[in-house]
């Protein structure tokens, strides 16, 4: 699980280079931010899975997870602001 959290943090640091220092600092202090990083990474991986899925529901699920990625990004930005 810890690796998922770190992958989420890394992905966010790539997404927002200007926020890298703040993300790293808060990640070390704020358990809620660590959980949100994990949720973010999980949402990204699920979006990738459903985008490639041949299941009829795949496109709908992929769209749902992309929306969830955006919503979680907002949660994280507010958490570190």
């Amino acid at each position: 699980m810890e690796q998922v959290q770190k992958r989420g943090l890394a992905r966010l640091m790539l997404r927002w280079p200007a926020q890298r220092a703040e993300l790293r600092r808060r990640f070390a202090q704020d358990p809620r931010l660590v959980e949100l990083c994990e949720a973010y990474e999980t949402a990204c991986e699920a979006a990738a899975y459903w985008t490639k899925s041949p299941a009829p529901v795949g496109p709908e699920r992929a769209e749902e997870y992309r929306a969830l990625i955006t919503a979680t990004e907002q949660d994280i930005l507010i958490r570190i602001s």
């Binding site: 809620r32 959980e35 949100l36 994990e38 949720a39 999980t42 949402a43 699920a46 899975y49 699920r61 749902e64 997870y65 969830l68 919503a71 979680t72 949660d75 507010i78 958490r79």
Partner: peptide, 19 residues
Amino acid sequence: TLDPIVRIEATRIRSALTA
């Protein structure tokens, strides 16, 4: 496990409650 919507949203709720 393939559709982790519940786990993700539970985390977001936890964060919202904390705030």
